[in-house]
Nucleic acid binder design. Structure first.
Lengths: 350, 350
DNA sequence: CACCAGAATGTAAGCGCTTACATTAATCCT
DNA sequence: AGGATTAATGTAAGCGCTTACATTCTGGTG
């Protein structure tokens, strides 16, 4: 059984195969696919038949190589595990889709070096522009981005004076405002369950906002107990347990994020600690979770969809060569629900 | 200021640029990047310096084109909005990562035609293999997959006799088992809040399992009230409200999914309906959400991580030319929590 | 010191596509 | 009907990379 030449059915069909089968040139096939109206109906039908018969799908790499544009944007988010970024990303995707742009998503697991790797991957794959979360990344990464002249935008954070194009909110101010309310309600013993702040500017800003509020209200931030732990419900629960096991448990536990707060809440119930009678708990982000736990979480509402949608709009503008002026700050607002109440008057402990 | 020739700083650096700058050939640069030990230390250092100075990143498309492999797998999930697929996907990704494979994720919004488009997109982008959710897709899509000889695996579902390679569980049997328990507890008036079953085999199987259980237990499935609605907490709440507003409200509301069940639960609290005293509610999937709502959900536990991990292992084997025998069925188990209780004995309505 | 194996490097041919430009076919005017 | 437009199609040159093969260096050996 002499194998004369290539093994046909192992072959992925190429433009050339389609062209041969349809009896036209490769250019015509290409036009059929990219500019159908520049081709006769008859020809188009013939070509399309060949495309289907062969199960042809254009090779993206080759196309990008030849055409020098991909209509693909990339987004690198810290995690897909919880819903923090889901809604915003969905809106981002929808807006892109409306403009015929495909979105590629990668996650960095909150690791800067992994993030840089993902950035390179996405760029190598031809991403025309990038959505990044927060400001924290190495100078090296920023330098790379600049050198490549890739349009990118930072979301989920916004610092007024920062040169980087961004769309988000003032994490610091938002947390400060929330803390003000907590203190207003008579709480003096505060604790914070935060995400790891080392390489997470949002977590850092939030904790700074809390401290700022304490200063402003005449409380000594040294008294503030802070526990750092990666985002997850279980970690939130664990942290809460440790905090409440101390000699003078706080009357209010602020959490850097709704996920952590949900964990704290569950653990409270488990321990028989009443929320908010015995201790108040607050979150941040206002993801869906916040409104379905018991009691529902008092938290900072973040305009996820708006942020995603506008990030897309801006990024598209940037890709098209329009440099929007500064970044944009979105408003947050405190969402009052049941988990925050006045500080208990008498003693404590369940 | 005569601009002689190309504008250097607008140029994306290529292999060639690196080669020139390092004073070597492109082949050597390529080797530095792909097989560092086939090159002198001295040369490698020089090349790497050039790479960094230029901010060079290889063009993936060109590389794939030349090398004919990408080490990239794709996954198309119905939605990123809720956590149903998050944990499994994370495990999938981790396992791939351990083998040096990059994962590209796309979402189809539960739309078969969008899914087909995404499949084409991912294949065009060079995906070596694909993870798909459930069996439901057009013959055309399957034909395309077959023609392209792309290894793919179906997850989150498993039907014994089905020829398609899959890893998952028996949605039908699991739901039937759960319903058996519900009926055992004395419930006779059942309702189901399901995802749309039209193009979702998992939802369909689950509802069939429920019906089967009713038959088996001498109940008439005609009495079963079914409400279909897209997955979301809000929709679950709405559906629950409508169901409970009927003349003879059921004593147990089974939900096709934890997200729907969480919605039902919240609405119940809102309406002052006690769970499980007045009505029992069950979920499916056992996502994190299930254990933090109040009361925690009795649900079907699905081995998400195991599924993701094994899907990856199988897919890698398939890509390497090993055809695993049949698909694999994973066990589910009923997770007893507080939301399911005995049927109320007396009358009803809050 | 001439010779040679083996390592290091260079040369150049594509990979599958788009697109500027050249060619041919169809259409319209006068 | 003939020539000028315009539309449809074809030709062929790359896009940035890998890799088979050719060439040039090494450093031992006899």
């Amino acid at each position: 059984m002499p194998d004369t030449g290539r093994n046909l059915d192992q072959q992925i069909p190429t433009l050339n195969d389609v062209a041969k089968r349809a009896g036209v040139s490769t250019a015509t096939v290409s036009r059929c696919l990219n500019a159908p109206d520049r081709v006769t109906d008859r020809t188009r039908d013939r070509v399309m038949a060949a495309v289907n018969a062969l199960g042809y799908a254009p090779n993206f790499g080759a196309r990008a190589l030849a055409a020098k544009r991909t209509n693909t944007f990339g987004a690198i988010i810290p995690t897909m595990e919880n819903a923090i970024f889901a809604r915003g990303l969905q809106a981002f995707q929808e807006e892109l889709g409306a403009h015929g742009i495909t979105l590629l998503v990668a996650s960095s697991s909150y690791k800067p070096d992994l993030e840089e790797e993902q950035i390179r991957t996405l760029i190598a794959r031809g991403a025309d522009a990038l959505l990044l979360i927060g400001y924290d990344r190495t100078q090296q990464t920023y330098a790379f981005l600049r050198k490549r002249k890739i349009p990118y935008i930072v979301a989920w954070a916004h610092q007024k004076d920062h040169p980087t194009q961004s769309i988000g909110f003032d994490n610091r101010a938002a947390m400060q405002a929330l803390t003000d309310e907590v203190i207003n309600l008579g709480h003096r013993e505060l604790a914070l369950i935060s995400a790891e702040r080392r390489e997470n500017d949002r977590a850092r800003e939030r904790s700074e906002g809390l401290v700022a509020s304490m200063w402003a209200n005449g409380l000594d931030p040294k008294e503030l107990r802070i526990l750092e732990t990666p985002y997850s419900i279980a970690n939130g629960a664990r942290a809460f347990e440790r905090i409440m096991a101390t000699e003078h448990p706080p009357t209010a536990v602020l959490c850097g994020n709704d996920v952590l707060a949900a964990g704290a809440l569950t653990k409270a119930r488990e321990l028989g600690i009443r929320v908010p009678q015995d201790v108040s708990i607050t979150g941040f982000d206002d993801i869906e979770l916040a409104s379905i736990v018991t009691p529902p979480l008092t938290t900072v509402h973040v305009p996820h969809r708006k942020m995603g949608q506008q990030a897309a709009a801006r990024l598209i503008a940037m890709r098209n060569g329009n440099i929007p002026e500064a970044g944009q700050e979105l408003e947050t607002e405190i969402k009052w629900r049941g988990s925050l109440g006045p500080a208990p008057t008498s003693s404590s402990t369940a």
